[in-house]
Design a protein around this nucleic acid. Sequence first.
DNA 1: ATCAATTGCGTTATGCTATAACGTGTGGCA
DNA 2: TGCCACACGTTATAGCATAACGCAATTGAT
Lengths: 134, 134
Amino acid sequence: MAAQQLTKNQSLVLDALHHADGPLSAYTILDKLRDHGFRAPLQVYRALDKLLEFGLIHRLESMNSFVACAHPDHQHHHDHGVTAFAICEDCGQVTEMHDEAMEERLTVLAGKQHFKTEKTTIEIRGHCQNCTAE
Amino acid sequence: MAAQQLTKNQSLVLDALHHADGPLSAYTILDKLRDHGFRAPLQVYRALDKLLEFGLIHRLESMNSFVACAHPDHQHHHDHGVTAFAICEDCGQVTEMHDEAMEERLTVLAGKQHFKTEKTTIEIRGHCQNCTAE
DNA sequence: ATCAATTGCGTTATGCTATAACGTGTGGCA
DNA sequence: TGCCACACGTTATAGCATAACGCAATTGAT
């Protein structure tokens, strides 16, 4: 239900991320969209902010870049819980992972500290199967 | 056994982090050390790189800043496994957490994807007990 | 002892990431 | 009609990080 109400800029940025084969930085997106009229970083960042808010994309903190959400069911995009990312340092591929047990474990950990969780970032850097095969 | 062999710059940066009551950005460290002769970002970044390598400090990816490692036993600093950070968005306090079960869970997750883990980042943003009490 | 390799250091310059601040246009709605 | 919220465009600036150069000190093998 979110896809229809995206603005032109938001759609362009989302498409760029969907067509990419890995995470993109804001400035890389900007370059890809210059032909579509993009001139300034803010045009990208504003779109990214909204897309993050809608849950349609993710931000990878450890590399200052963004990926389209792999989750196909955009109906309940807002509640697919904690996401862990496996990021291959060779090919750049990103795999999105969800795990109840881990989520549970994090809840317990935070609880021990009486910490109120707002957002959780889990990023695993390493080498994917293909690139390990060498 | 690492502390003795630190260079002057490395010691200064580590001290700055130890005396801080929260994470510091590289440029904040630079400002704190101007009186000690620091003039350029690279002086800070080079020290930070080494301290990270020695396991004496951590980098918080989600806020581009650095904290001294809370682990007291620097003897085996290199193998205290995965660390999760609880970062309070109100007061900036950072709590370091270690959990076997979660580590195990992440190993399983990575294993499923045949992913070879090099480094794992876990950062929980939210509000600490003090700041939640409000 | 000497040469080569390594490591840390200082400096200048540059590149990448992100946001502030201002003004415009548009659509909804009381 | 007038107000409000929101997306947009533009310029400027702030914040984070590294490239590339040259020098000095240390180590360690010959």
